[in-house]
């Protein structure tokens, strides 16, 4: 079972090339999950106790505003990850995640993974180096969205 998860993790873009010993450690925190279209995966304000690696399907990250409904600010597809609030306090979701179509993912138990990163700083460093480019890229993309480039500037 764990061996199968190791293989799935190693094939996912996020963990691609991870040292085999680290992969075994990470697989100990992982499980396969499946969501139906329209199903909420988590809600804003809840404890960020999982970290998700999408294998198939698509997930919308949303923020709701009174009178405006749910606004999707990013969609996540195969090979991508979401739920990075697991890493640092206050370990709380700051948006909703909703499956837009039938979605298969690997769910990493955040407490378990944090513990392993804490006890093996080499693993922690490796995972941090995988997360940072994603966070930087998303910050950059958010800036571009904020610029509203396609708006008519009459």
């Amino acid at each position: 079972m764990t061996e199968n998860l190791e293989r799935i993790l190693s094939e996912h873009r996020f963990f691609h090339g991870l040292d085999k010993a680290f992969l075994e450690l990470a697989a100990g925190c992982a499980k396969n999950v499946r969501f139906e279209a329209g199903q909420f995966i988590f809600h804003e304000g809840e404890a960020a106790d999982q970290f998700y690696l999408v294998r198939e399907g698509r997930v919308a990250l949303q923020v709701s505003a009174p009178g405006r409904g749910a606004a999707t600010f990013l969609t996540i597809g195969p090979g991508e990850v979401f739920g990075v609030n697991w890493l640092l306090p206050p370990f709380r979701w700051v948006y909703d995640a909703k499956a837009l179509e039938p979605t298969r993912a690997i769910s990493m138990d955040a407490r378990c993974l944090r513990g392993k990163c804490e006890s093996d700083h080499n693993l922690g460093y490796d995972i941090m180096m995988r997360l940072m480019p994603i966070l930087i890229e998303r910050l950059h993309e958010t800036r571009l969205q904020f610029l509203d480039l396609y708006k008519s500037h009459a």
């Binding site: 409904g69 749910a70 606004a71 600010f73 990013l74 993309e141 571009l144 969205q145």
Partner: peptide, 20 residues
């Protein structure tokens, strides 16, 4: 770049599609 709940397609900047 911006979508409501009815939109079922991608949300994000076009450079994001290039990475895929």
């Amino acid at each position: 770049d911006h979508a409501t709940d009815e939109w079922r397609g991608h949300v994000g900047v076009v450079t994001n599609l290039i990475s895929r």
